[in-house]
Structure formats: structure tokens, C-alpha cells
Amino acid sequence: MELRLEALSVVVDGNALVRELSLDVPDGQVVGLVGPNGSGKSTALRCVYRALRPTAGAVLVDGTDVATTSRRQSARQVAALTQEGGADLDFTVAETVALGRTPHKRGNEALSARERALCERVMAQLDVAHLAGRGVLSLSGGERQRVLAARALVQEPEVLVLDEPTNHLDVRHQIELLSLLRGSGATVLVVLHDLNLAAATCDRIGVLSRGALVAAGAPWEVLTAELVERVFGVAATVVPHPLTGDPQLLYALTPTPTHAGSAGPPEGTHL
């Protein structure tokens, strides 16, 4: 299922948070959004999972504007892991993960045997099965993040959007989660701050600065030393990973005087 952000703009209190963003996420691919803080990444994602209505433009899933579909249908198609995804109620881990099946159930209908097995399998994959009986509020930040990722995955969405899913995770769990995303078969749009993880995980990358798309393409096309200095304001050397060949950035500790986020979008840039 293809996801497309079509000339998406979001203006709040006179401030353009996202400016005419056009971005394609082909069926089954992982596309990353990267950019400095405040560049509009999370705002764009909120439009996808309908937490925010765009001022202009549209979010299309297989050519249909999500604003024209029912909330229930959207929830069946699109799952989200957000930065604000923490549980307010102290459900157990097993109960929280099972909530991912809610769009597919009627009322208090019990989980089927297949759904119970799905929840158990995803919890095991994300290393939270041993926490099944624990209250979510008793968990560490990293444990809770993995539980919320499991909840999104058991939803079996066709489109999965994730906002900084590796927050709070140690290196092992970062790699496990991103590997699981790549193998999920879903169409994935993910915001990442770690450019090296983005290069290793994503089929394509879009770079945002001040709400606009300034570059888009395969990791090797996008993650250049010139772009990193221009957009992020840091000096970096780009080298191939010795095993995978993916671009990897080696940073200098002294930042350049370039003002991060100052880049504007080239005409007609889209992914």
C-alpha cells in the first residue's frame, strides 16, 4: 500500500511548520525523515495518523485522502508509534499490546487464538514477553518504548509511521526494532535522528529543514558531507560501512559556524 504526502502544508499561529511537502513512500519500503529539531518531521507524521489536519495538501493512502475515510478504517490501515505514546493508565504489558487489535474488534470482543498468538510472538520479538504481567507505568523508558512498538505491530497495519522509535533504546534493541520494521512488509515512514541508523535502515531518505524538503533519495545520494554541514551545521566524513556498504558518517567534535536548518528547498524536490 503506497503512502503519499501531497503538497502538505501546516500553518499554526501564522508559523509555517510544514511547507508544501511532497513525499512518496512506495509499497513495502522504509522511508526515513531526518532533519534538525523543529524542522517539521513530527508535524508531518501527525498529519498521516490524523492527529493534525493539514492546512493545505493531503495525505493519500493508495490514492485515497485519509481525511475522507472513517476513523476505524484509518486505524485498520495506519498504525503509529508517537513521541507522546506513553500510557496514562497502568495496564499490564499484555493488555497494552492487545490494544493494538482494537480497530479489528467489535466492542469487548475477546481476542481470537490467532490474535493471542500474534501478540505473544511480537512481544517475544521485541523482548517484552517476560514483562507481560507488569504494569506499563513500572517499566523503564526503553521497556515501555518496546511495548508501544509491539502494540503498533500487532495492529497489522499496511502503513506504519514511527516518530523517533529508537528513543530510550540501547544499541541491541535499536537494531532489533529497526530490523523488525524492515522485515514487517508494511509501508513505513519513520523519523530518525541517528543518520547512521537511517542509512542502514531506510530504502530512501527525505531531509527536512524549516518545514521544507531539501533533499530526497537513496541514502548515498542524500547523506553527503556537504548536505550534513549545510542542514545540520556539523562537519562529517562519509565512508562506506565495511560490511554493508551503507554510508556512515564520522563527525568532527567542533561544529561548523553554518546555521543548522538554514537550507531552503530546491524547486520541485519530491520523493
Rank of each mutant, 00 (worst) to 15 (best):
D194A: 06
L178D: 03
R146Q: 08
G185S: 07
T166P: 01
V97Q: 02
V222W: 12
E164L: 04
L153Q: 05
M123H: 08
L208H: 14
G86A: 15
G142I: 00
D163C: 04
D90G: 01
E95W: 05
A186I: 05
G133W: 03
L111V: 10
G142R: 00
V214F: 10
L118K: 05
Q174M: 01
L180S: 03
C202R: 04
L139G: 09
V161P: 07
L177A: 04
P157Y: 06
E120F: 02
R172C: 00
L126Q: 03
L131D: 11
T102W: 10
R144W: 14
G107W: 15
P103K: 07
L126M: 13
S209T: 07
V147F: 09
D88G: 07
R116T: 14
S179N: 13
H173G: 00
G100M: 07
L181V: 01
D203Q: 14
I205D: 11
Q174E: 01
A113E: 14
R172L: 00
L131S: 12
D127F: 03
I175T: 07
L208E: 12
Q83N: 02
R144T: 12
E158D: 13
R210W: 04
T187P: 07
I205P: 07
V191E: 05
G135I: 11
L162M: 15
L181H: 02
L148S: 07
E109I: 03
L137G: 06
D203P: 09
D163I: 03
L181P: 00
G142C: 03
V171W: 00
L197P: 03
A152V: 08
H130T: 13
V188P: 01
N167K: 01
R144K: 12
A132F: 06
D170I: 00
H168V: 00
L178S: 05
R116S: 12
A215Y: 14
I205G: 09
L99T: 10
A149H: 09
E164K: 00
N108I: 14
A124Q: 14
L213E: 13
L192M: 08
V222F: 10
T187K: 05
G133R: 11
A225L: 08
V154C: 07
V214D: 11
L81K: 01
I205K: 07
I205F: 12
E221S: 14
P219Y: 13
A124F: 05
L180G: 02
A186K: 06
A215T: 14
V171P: 00
T96A: 11
T96D: 04
A200H: 06
R134F: 09
A215P: 14
L195V: 11
D127E: 15
A200E: 13
V207M: 09
L213M: 15
T201I: 09
A218V: 15
R146M: 05
L160V: 10
A132M: 11
R204F: 10
S140A: 07
A215R: 15
G183C: 02
E156Y: 13
V188D: 02
Q155F: 10
R204C: 08
A98R: 11
A117N: 09
G133H: 11
V222N: 14
L197A: 04
L99W: 06
L99C: 12
S112F: 06
R151H: 11
L192V: 04
S179P: 01
R116C: 13
L89F: 15
L162Y: 10
G86K: 07
G86M: 03
E156A: 15
S179W: 00
Q83T: 12
G141S: 08
L148R: 03
R204L: 07
L89I: 12
L189G: 08
C119G: 09
